[in-house]
């Protein structure tokens, strides 16, 4: 179950060929998961539907934008975001610029470039009791290195994860033959940093952590 709320404060100043705006936005999402049967932190199972503590995702951002249309054939769109990821305690500067050129009334060319960031899902960040699989079915290989040497028996979050960031550039072309027939071509490249990879780490390399008490609390609807 997702519960989203937030607010946006902005203002725009429009003129004949230029629209300028700026603002501030705050967004929050709470994600609540439930399960039947409910598995307690000690591994015991109860035949009830229970909800886990909600996971939160919050972002606070300042932005400024400008749309410039000097004539019928050319227009430019610029946006600058300064975004604060409250979950990862990191700040991101994300500008984006689009240049649009219309050589004829039936053709349009667009060049866009910018930066962006993407936060890890809160379930990947939040320290919680590891969710174990079925240890009775563990079938370890005969080797301790190489292919399949590690057998994952549980999944765990990493509170030190950072958002993925990306620099991208895109060139697009569109042509309209008539009111119902058109073609588009789009080429893009995106370089991503801090890419999030899923994988296995040896149990021996995991440091012990203390799970916050509020994340251990459970809500059980009915017995």
């Amino acid at each position: 179950m997702y519960h989203n709320h937030g607010y946006l404060l902005s203002d725009d100043f429009a003129s004949a060929k230029n629209d300028v705006g700026f603002g501030y936005t705050w967004l929050h999402q709470a994600n609540t998961n439930g399960q039947f049967p409910y598995i307690l932190c000690n591994g015991n199972t109860q035949n009830v539907f229970g909800t886990y503590p909600p996971l939160s995702l919050a972002t606070a951002s300042y932005f400024a934008r400008d749309t410039w249309m000097p004539n019928d054939k050319f227009s430019a769109f610029a946006t600058v975001w300064v975004q604060r990821s409250l979950n990862t305690i990191s700040t991101h500067f994300d500008p984006r610029l689009s240049l649009v050129f219309r050589p004829t009334t039936n053709d349009v060319i667009r060049l866009t470039s910018g930066r962006a960031y993407s936060e890890p899902d809160p379930s990947l960040l939040t320290p919680a009791p590891p969710s174990y699989g079925s240890p009775t079915s563990v079938n370890c290989p005969s080797t301790t290195t190489g292919s399949g040497a590690l057998v994952a028996i549980a999944s765990e979050a990493d509170p030190n994860l950072l958002p993925e960031t990306a620099n991208d550039v895109e060139l697009a072309y569109g042509h309209r033959f008539n009111f119902s027939t058109s073609i588009q071509a789009d080429a893009y490249q995106s370089w991503e940093n801090q890419a999030l990879l899923s994988g296995n780490v040896p149990i021996s390399s995991i440091a012990q952590i203390t799970v916050p008490q509020h994340l251990i609390a459970i809500n059980i609807f009915s017995a």
Binding site: A185, A187, S204
Partner: peptide, 26 residues
């Protein structure tokens, strides 16, 4: 030495390149 946790890392870069062609025909 065999047992592991599955988890998520910030461990690399990634490069995505592509071409998208599309058409609408009446």
């Amino acid at each position: 030495n065999n047992l592991a946790f599955s988890t998520t890392f910030n461990a690399a870069g990634a490069r995505y390149r592509g071409i998208v062609l599309s058409a609408n025909v009446g």
